[in-house]
């Protein structure tokens, strides 16, 4: 009789452990998905800001038609790359980022533009959006790390293997371009 109770007790404890671990696996996976969608939100925000920025800058920098067009084109390409896989999207977004920083660098030569309230507000929004993209990527990677740790560590690793949880992928950016601190040359 006692043996039966012990067996039942052990089974109940095991069941509770399984349920708790399963639930925290689900919670962590949902968090990674939510974090991923946050990146998309911020990328979309950047796309939305650009037409406004180009429109404002146009009036002041008529001579920089090429730079402005480059930004508009890069933005359209980036928008077209949505849904074509992480690699294509990351590449297009990287090019858009480059075109944008060229535009803002050129804008330094136009004091009138830099004094424009609208432009300043847009510039603040754009800076912040760049930061938000970086931070949402950072949070995505943090969540993936937590999720992967959970999947690979005992005892949740057993439950993850049985119920088919798969380790998530980190959002890596091309090493050597974005990671490196910007170099200033005085040549």
């Amino acid at each position: 009789m006692i043996a039966l109770y012990v067996v039942i007790g052990v089974l109940v404890v095991l069941l509770i452990l399984v349920v708790l671990n399963f639930n925290s696996l689900v919670r962590l996976r949902n968090q990674t998905q939510n974090a991923w969608s946050q990146i998309d939100v911020q990328l979309k925000r950047r796309h939305d800001l650009i037409p406004n920025l180009v429109e404002t800058a146009k009036g002041y920098m008529a001579h920089e038609r090429e730079t402005l067009e480059a930004v508009t084109n890069a933005r359209n390409l980036a928008q077209g790359a949505i849904g074509k896989g992480i690699d294509a999207q990351a590449k297009a977004e990287g090019e858009l980022g480059g075109a944008l920083s060229r535009l803002l660098a050129v804008a330094e030569n136009y004091p009138d533009l830099k004094a424009n309230q609208n432009f300043l507000a847009l510039q603040e929004e754009l800076t912040s959006t760049e930061n938000k993209i970086a931070f949402s990527r950072q949070f995505y990677n943090d969540s993936i790390l937590r999720y992967n740790n959970k999947i690979q560590m005992f005892p949740s690793s057993v439950i993850a293997a049985m119920t088919g949880f798969k380790a998530g992928e980190f959002f890596e950016i091309e090493v050597g371009t974005e990671r490196e601190a910007p170099k200033v040359s005085f040549a």
Binding site: Q31, Q38, E124, E125, S128, K132, F135, F139, S143
Partner: peptide, 16 residues
């Protein structure tokens, strides 16, 4: 104060 708002939002995102 858009800048303060943006900074708070950035940290909200970073902390989840």
């Amino acid at each position: 104060h858009p800048r303060l708002f943006n900074v708070v939002e950035e940290m909200k995102i970073a902390s989840g």
